[in-house]
Computed example of a mutant assay.
Amino acid sequence: MPSHSAKLKKLMLLAMMTSLDVVLSPLFRIEGMAPMSSVINVIAAVLMGPLYATLMALACGVLRMMLLGIPPLALTGAVFGAFFAGIGYRWGKKSEYAMLGEFIGTGIIGSLLSYPVMVWFTGSAQELYWFVYTPRFVGAAIIGSSAARVVLLKLQEIPLFISMQHLFFGFAFESHPHSLPISRSKIK
């Protein structure tokens, strides 16, 4: 059973990652793409796992819709990307698997589910077709995942990052040489 201190640390980290996503996504934006959302999704997946990464993406999407007037596309791409990035990382224990999960979740699933959501949101299917969002979502997922990989290479050298990862997973993964679990002695 996690202590109150551990629960509080998890919530604080969740709030911090959500805040970073809400603030940075509109700043580093390419028209029709949100690659910074993919950056944060992959980092959150590696740091916090699928549940907390998905909660972060959901909270961020809702906040961006309420505060910035972004359509429901803020949810369809980010939530699936964060979930599959977390699943990929948990399964493969390397950030490359989180990148693949982000690509599948945001680039493929999120883009395809955006069509019916936007038809419902706009009330018209005349100007939309199933793959209308796919090129932009795939582009954002590739750009964002690649940038996240560069950031993660540096973050995984920081003891605080490793200890936070240990908090969520119960252990931490090392990005090299073969993604072996890090002993508790290295994180204290």
Results as ranks from 00 to 15, higher is better:
A74R: 02
P116A: 03
V22Y: 07
P50V: 04
L27I: 13
M17N: 08
P50Q: 06
L20E: 04
V22S: 09
L73I: 14
G105Q: 01
F83H: 02
P50D: 09
V62H: 06
T106H: 04
V39E: 03
L180V: 14
A53V: 08
P72G: 14
Y52L: 10
E96F: 02
G105H: 02
I143F: 02
K188N: 10
K7P: 04
A74Q: 06
Y52S: 11
K94G: 13
A34W: 02
V151H: 06
G123V: 11
I30S: 01
P159K: 15
L68V: 01
H4F: 10
F137T: 03
R184M: 12
R149F: 14
I142M: 11
I30N: 03
L112F: 13
A53R: 05
M16T: 15
G123N: 05
E127T: 14
V138H: 02
P26V: 07
P181K: 11
I143Y: 00
V79H: 00
Y52T: 09
G49V: 05
I162V: 14
P71N: 06
F137N: 05
G61Q: 09
V151S: 10
L67I: 13
F171P: 00
I30C: 01
I158S: 12
F83L: 15
S3E: 05
S25P: 12
S175I: 09
G81Y: 03
G123A: 06
V117A: 05
L167M: 09
I142C: 09
S114C: 11
A15C: 09
I162A: 14
F161G: 12
V62P: 04
K7E: 15
I182Q: 09
P26H: 11
